Computed example of a mutant assay.
Amino acid sequence: MALTSREALRDRAGALVEEACAWAVGLSDRPWVQRRHGRVVDGGQTIGSRALSGLPLAGEEDARLELGDAAPGSFQDALGALAPDGTLLAERFDDEVLVPFALAAGVVAAGRLQRADPQGWADLLDELGEDGSDLEAVVRAGEWDAPLRADAEQLVLGALGRRPLAEVEAEGLPLAVVRAAEAQTRAAAERPPAAPPGAAALEGAVFLAEAAVAGAGLTVPVPPDEAEVLLLALRDEGLEEDEVLAVLPLLPLAPGTAAAVAARLSP
């Protein structure tokens, strides 16, 4: 399972880097703060202005070991910078990008193993004490998400770590805009010309669902083996089960994906 999980993560490495770039957008506008005598104080600059001046962003006493030796003003250096609440920006990057992406890769890997080796899958579930109805729970029970997070971090740092923060932000902005535009174009092309009764009430749910597909880095059209990841993304956007079922016909899904998602909903 560990090997399959790493393969799933590598398969989605490009999407991970895109997510990292998109996440970085706006970091330059944040205030640069520093720890002085144990207190976090305003440094009188923005992260972006300091980065452009070639000055370090991370404080020596706060930076993580794996973020050490960062080039001043680089994306890696920015991850070691402090937020006004005293936490590292790297912690937010973990919570908002690396952790969910690693978990999603583990879910994809679990689905692959389930289909490729049913007996091995059954043995694994028995060992973990899981029934297999919740692939996310299986990944967590097997503790595969933590090493995947570390692998994801290394992939991102290898691709973006030494690049200037401004360059990473510039790359993230157009990619995010393009993804959103593509999602809107697909939705417009696939919606039926005559909207069924009550469709107006679904507009908000459809918008959130399209954002979920674009933001999760899913293959488009979404194949059945990514149904679990799609469902997690839809739930993360706040969609209820009836809304999920209603928007599935309006999303760019491969044959069998809608049924796979529906099968994972509570009976």
Results as ranks from 00 to 15, higher is better:
A258N: 06
G43V: 02
L128P: 02
P221C: 02
S28E: 05
R149I: 01
R162A: 14
W144N: 03
E237L: 06
D145P: 00
L265I: 14
G59Q: 12
G204N: 04
G26L: 08
D62E: 15
P252R: 06
V138H: 03
W32S: 07
P193G: 15
G80E: 04
W23H: 08
L165H: 08
V247G: 05
G111L: 06
L67R: 07
V40R: 04
D95H: 13
L253Q: 04
E203I: 03
A20V: 10
L67W: 13
G256V: 02
G129N: 06
A71K: 13
P224R: 01
G198S: 01
L82D: 03
D85V: 01
W23S: 03
A8M: 06
L155V: 14
G106S: 05
G80T: 00
A90W: 08
A188G: 09
E130Q: 12
V213R: 09
E18I: 00
D123R: 14
L248G: 08
E171N: 02
E143P: 09
V108D: 06
A24H: 07
G86E: 02
R191Q: 13
A262E: 09
E130A: 12
L27A: 10
L239V: 08
G215I: 10
L148C: 05
A183V: 03
G26W: 03
L128N: 07
L265Q: 09
V99Y: 12
G111Q: 05
W32N: 09
P164S: 11
V222Q: 09
R12E: 03
F93V: 10
A78W: 07
V17R: 03
G48S: 06
T185Q: 13
Q184C: 09
R39Q: 14
A90S: 12
Q114E: 15
E237G: 11
S5I: 06
R92P: 14
A233W: 02
A78V: 08
S133I: 13
Q76S: 13
A212C: 09
G238E: 00
V97L: 01
D123M: 12
A214R: 02
R191L: 11
